[in-house]
Design a protein around this nucleic acid. Structure first.
Lengths: 182, 182
DNA sequence: CTCTACGTTCAGAATTTTCTAAACGTTCGG
DNA sequence: CCGAACGTTTAGAAAATTCTGAACGTAGAG
């Protein structure tokens, strides 16, 4: 593997590992494909990354599910070939939609469920009623907050993907470089 | 532990486990504290969650570092007591700032580093120069995209925390468009 | 100063996750 | 149909992580 590509693969792998969105290996696979002009066969990916074919097979499927990687047919070959998505805005929308939002709703469902359990308790004693009032006072703002997050995600995801040029124009001033070395 | 609280603890724990931001146990600790009006001692947390004190000690420290939980002194007692943050907006700003943004910069640093390596290679042959041009064509939009993300995080984090009332008012009419200015 | 109640550290146990290689199923060229 | 070239499944190995209990350090009460 070329030196520059190796650096990118390592760096993106490390970033993915701490992202909570992708695993390190998924990050590495994506990085490798992202820096290849033409689709790579499963086996090429495996040998490039020093992993077994079975492991790549399993992990690349996750990337395909998330639309970070596309499977393409290459005329002369029977092998499966893969290429990385290049529309980063759309990739982010997908991740927002399918992961972040799912999490947000999980929290909302939990809060709602908790309120339901609370209502079902029907405490007759004053202490129990006070307790229920307190719990509601905690649960309601949480529910509101996550509802707003949910709405914000909707708003973002209904927008059209930006082109690189548009993105460029949004940037205020050149960001100072941050030397977060690996 | 009360039934309603148990449901909340389990639910938030599950959400945290898949969030990539907190571990399940951190989620459970936060949930427990969030639904308690008065600070809990380390030991109370441990027994409520069925974990060893040492494990809670380690995991609660992470929450304190992230300002999701505050350590407070309780006059009559020598024990450490903890209470959950209730300002969810501020909590989210903190997480954005310290985790998501850090990740974004990691990617930017990687892309920059890769370009540097590319420049250092100084390929004389035509094929090498073509390859370098292609890699640059992939790296530059990525760099731009993540710069925009970085700027967006700045914008969000420079805003004042919303009050629950304000959040509520934002809810009915979803945000129509993502602003382009600061 | 001593004794005790606490939180923290740490070595290793328990559990979970990741990875491999062999077995298997499928497709396609002959 | 056959055989070879594939990708996938899966049982278990390897590695990473989470968790515990004992040892340790510390601060405050007496």
């Amino acid at each position: 593997m070329e030196h520059a590509v190796a650096i990118f693969v390592d760096g993106l792998g490390a970033a993915a590992a701490t992202s909570g969105i992708l695993t390190q290996l998924e990050g590495r696979i994506f990085a490798l494909l992202y820096l290849h002009e033409y689709p790579l066969a499963l086996e090429d990916v495996a040998t490039s990354l020093g992993q077994s074919k079975s492991n790549i097979s399993v992990n690349i499927r996750g990337l395909v599910d998330w639309h970070l990687v596309r499977r393409v047919r290459v005329p002369g070959s029977r092998k499966d070939h893969y290429e990385a998505a290049t529309n980063l805005w759309r990739v982010m929308q997908e991740i927002m939609e399918r992961r972040f939002r799912w999490n947000v709703r999980q929290v909302m469902a939990t809060a709602t469920e908790t309120k339901r359990a609370l209502a079902a308790e029907r405490g007759a004693k004053k202490a129990a009623r006070d307790q229920a009032a307190f719990l509601t006072a905690r649960l309601d703002p949480l529910l509101t907050f996550f509802s707003v997050l949910d709405a914000a995600i909707s708003a973002i995801n209904q927008g059209q993907p930006f082109s690189p040029a548009t993105l460029q124009s949004v940037l205020p001033a050149p960001i100072a470089r941050v030397g977060r070395g690996t």
